[in-house]
């Protein structure tokens, strides 16, 4: 079924209760990702991108008030799955995840090899020996020597630990790995070598990646598709080539201009103002308040318009495009 995307997300909404009211962390997010594709979800902190990662894995916070939308894996709707069925058929089988700061969440008293092999023992019921052999293979893939299997987490550097949690996401050979800020706590050289490892894995295993990050420069190392989030919504979804080359949404443009570039002379600009409070987002376009191209239509919530074949933008400026 070449035409069906690996994962299709339609109108995903997730609201949760907090002390001060209902936080609309995800408010109608739709996108899809194909096999062997790398999608980068960009956004500032608090835009809902980490919530998105957890929602895709159905790891919901306890105070969820509303969770709706469609999550199709290979065209199969999984929202109706029971937790048990989702765990058995999807989570860590089809889609696995590297959580934010997961490298600091490794159990300090269990050897790294055993922790990385854990999904194999749980999801596949493999023997310890089988699991160890497979783990050693995956270690090679992510660029850690098999000697490290017997080490404890504190004996590994940050980069090594990050590779180990990546290995943990890969041991079950999922079709899709979701990574939440996988390199943001790491040094430049380590970041680069982990991005190299991701490229290699994508080539060799054909895995798809969703990379959730605020680091535009590093994300460009792997991005084929880019989804930009703002205040719980997807404002632009496009091919990396188009997004980096010619961003369409006013927010995308400003964001790209704010990136400091090593090899360019121009001073980066900054985006004035602050993102809205998700407890009580504004009526119309959520970016309108900070938008330099704002006009009267922006008082109404913009629809998502399609530009060309592969790009959608949630902005009235692109109303010439076809509606989605």
């Amino acid at each position: 079924m070449a035409s069906e995307p690996l994962l299709r997300v339609e109108d995903l909404r997730l609201h949760y209760r907090s002390g001060n009211g209902v936080v609309r962390a995800l408010d109608g997010v739709s996108f899809d990702i194909r096999r062997n594709e790398a999608l980068v979800v960009l956004g500032e902190s608090g835009c809902g991108k980490s919530t998105l990662a957890k929602a895709l894995m159905r790891l919901l916070p306890r105070n969820v008030q509303h969770f709706s939308g469609n999550l199709l894996v290979d065209g199969v709707e999984t929202m109706g799955f029971s937790e048990e069925r989702f765990r058995r058929e999807v989570r860590w089988v089809r889609i696995s995840m590297v959580m934010q700061a997961a490298m600091n969440a490794l159990n300090p008293v269990i050897r790294v090899g055993e922790q990385v092999a854990e999904p194999l023992r749980v999801h596949r019921g493999w023997s310890a020996r089988q699991a160890r052999e497979r783990t050693a293979e995956v270690f090679g893939l992510v660029g850690i020597s098999a000697d490290f299997l017997q080490r404890y987490p504190f004996e590994l550097s940050g980069g090594m630990r990050q590779r180990a949690v990546l290995a943990m996401a890969l041991v079950t050979e999922p079709d899709l790995v979701i990574m939440d800020e996988p390199t943001s706590a790491l040094d430049v050289l380590t970041q680069a070598s982990i991005m190299n490892a991701l490229k290699r894995i994508k080539q060799e295993l054909g895995t798809s990646f969703i990379l959730i990050t605020h680091d535009i420069s590093t994300s460009s190392e792997i991005a084929e598709r880019v989804a930009l989030m703002y205040a719980g919504q997807l404002v632009e979804f496009a091919d990396a080539k188009d997004f980096f080359g010619e961003p369409a949404h006013p927010y995308s443009k400003l964001l790209m201009a704010s990136v400091p570039r090593l090899h360019q002379e121009e001073t980066p600009v900054h985006i004035p103002g602050q993102p809205p409070n998700l407890l009580d987002p504004p009526e119309g376009c959520r970016f309108a308040e900070r938008c330099p191209s704002r006009f009267d239509r922006c008082d109404r919530d913009p629809e998502t318009f399609r530009i060309g074949n592969r790009r959608t933008v949630r902005c009235w400026l692109h109303a010439a495009g076809s509606r989605v």
Partner: peptide
Amino acid sequence: AISDPDPDNA
């Protein structure tokens, strides 16, 4: 090792 945002990086 430092990248500027550029689709060719990939």
